[in-house]
Design a protein around this nucleic acid. Structure first.
Lengths: 251, 251
DNA sequence: CGCTTCTTTGATTCAACTCAATGGATGTGG
DNA sequence: CCACATCCATTGAGTTGAATCAAAGAAGCG
């Protein structure tokens, strides 16, 4: 099946709900997201260009490959899966993204999006028009620094994934994956030990370079050895130290 | 063995040779490297801050993890291996870099280098002081765009590696690796079919998540099936189409 | 409520790893 | 310049971790 904007359940931004005006100044994510470390007066400038769009439902795409690159997207609530299709139409997942995280950087160079970005659950987000962002960057050095940091961050995140995919066993890959989620949720002020997996086993396997069956088996093994509990989408970590040990140098 | 600056053969930049003053304006890489698309007047500003350092010998490090991040590095001639060590001291290669390519982006956020960067052969490079670069970015919009493009490029490159490592067979991985080198050398005006492999089989395997023996076996297989010839470090591609086909959607 | 999709478990297969050994290349010191 | 040591690359044999194939149960959806 070819995915187009048309066959997704709902077009991004066409929700019947009007979202309240949300500003960076009052946003609870401001210390994690783009505004991190910015002075109040500069935040106001940011607010002026950032469009917080109405929420979209699970299964909708934020962008498709080939779409003209206009904006980066900052996630406010919900989660996003970023993926590409190979020439056989097989999905290859690049990453999962959560509140406070910004996506779309890979499109800057090509001036077109090169990935699919789809909501894994109801999603609210801010649209960051890149051209206007560039102008502000030139104006506010702090803000330019912050943009470079975000891009640099994205590169580091991908380094970590490369290290995870290369030369790690299925057990280690899954441990690293779970600890990464745990750490990210902790930063958001959510529980680091009990959380929801917004993606399917299939998607976890795809992301980590494992078959679904392997993911399922490792989960079962981790339950048996009392490292964690998984009931459908709910995961609770029971032995963080043991999981951490499985990660090796990573996360 | 722990690697420190002290036990590398020669300290970066302490060559007894004085390198001739090289400028972006006259550099043959200017269309590939940082200056791509910049106007002459802006190139001059760039030249003013860029330090082209004396060549360093094979085995020397450009930077070590933990060193304060001061500069990005643009490669002029030679090649660089970027890697990290895991907690067991095992090397994990992140990438190989060639003339016109810029490294060090992952250090921006942490303000320290997080990888090792080592010369695989005699290396000449330009040092790009990041603070000064930031200032120029704010001044010259074109240049800011270019920096964003370079960062975005790096992200794309890593996406490709992620796709390569995840779910590809040994044959496919090696085909993708070879085609990637071929394409990069072609851009530099070198031969796309006959080139030197500056890295060992061990290093290729490490980078691709394969055992040395597997790399060796695949090379032998590719020779037998007339896809290419490898004699020690010299590789010649004999059937580009077949190699390309093995790559799937990639490169 | 029936259909589809997701998850789990078992049996079997296979690609790549490990272990082992050899040959070739490179480098060092006498 | 040769002898020796070291490192790198190749090939073979055997093992294994994860994939594939198959099937059944559970959950989500219209």
């Amino acid at each position: 099946m070819t995915i187009t904007k048309e066959n997704t359940k709902e077009i991004a931004g066409r929700s019947i709900f009007r979202s309240p005006r949300v500003s960076c100044v009052t946003c609870s994510l401001s210390e994690l997201c783009l505004p991190r470390g910015l002075k109040k007066e500069n935040l106001d400038k940011l607010d002026y260009i950032i469009k917080n769009s109405p929420p979209i439902a699970k299964g909708n795409h934020l962008y498709l490959p080939g779409d003209d690159f206009k904006s980066l997207f900052a996630i406010r609530t919900g989660s996003v899966k970023v993926y590409v299709l190979d020439k056989n139409g097989e999905e290859q997942i690049i990453g999962f993204y959560f509140p406070g995280e910004v996506i779309g950087f890979d499109a800057i160079n090509k001036e077109k999006y090169i990935c699919y970005a789809i909501a894994l659950e109801t999603l609210s987000y801010c649209k960051l028009p890149f051209e206007k962002m560039s102008l502000i960057c030139a104006e506010i050095p702090e803000f330019q620094d912050q943009m470079f940091r975000l891009l640099s961050d994205e590169i580091s995140t991908e380094h970590d994934l490369i290290l995870t995919l290369s030369k790690r066993t299925a057990d280690e890959k899954l441990a690293i994956f779970i600890m990464s989620l745990s750490n990210r949720f902790a930063k958001l002020g959510y529980s680091s030990t009990v959380f929801n997996l917004p993606m399917s086993r299939q998607e976890i396997g795809n992301y980590l370079g494992l078959a679904v069956e392997t993911v399922s088996r490792v989960f079962t093994k981790f339950k048996r050895t009392e490292l964690l509990d998984v009931d459908k989408k709910i995961l609770s970590i029971k032995d963080k130290d043991a999981l951490h040990a499985l990660c090796g140098y990573n996360k």
